[in-house]
Amino acid sequence: MNATVLQVGVLLFTLGLGMVVLRGQLLAMLLGIELMVGAVNVILTYHANLFGDPKALAAVVLIICVAAAEAVLGLCLILKLHHGGIPAETESLAELRD
């Protein structure tokens, strides 16, 4: 049974990764990251029940909290970009190169 959960988790994770990598808008990428973290939480919660170990659940809560911090930070950056008049697109952020 835990193989299927792993596969579901990995599927969700790759979906999130796809969103981050393929989409051009920063907001969508932010959502992708949240999706990836969500996939990890799915796997962890399942295995926490499997091993009956409450520490993993505490870990899930911690991970959600960290993900929230990341989200806040990402939104703050996007807002700053918006105030600066720069479109939140990956194409516009390409000045620095070799």
């Binding site: 990764l17 981050v20 990598v21 393929l22 051009g24 990956t90 194409e91 952020l93 390409a94 000045e95 620095l96 190169r97 070799d98």
Partner: peptide, 19 residues
């Protein structure tokens, strides 16, 4: 050095490298 350089400047290409 030029031939070897991987960085193209765009974020999405870079993320491909991570994957």
């Amino acid at each position: 050095g030029g031939a070897v350089s991987l960085t193209s400047g765009r974020l999405s290409d870079h993320l491909w490298w991570i994957v």
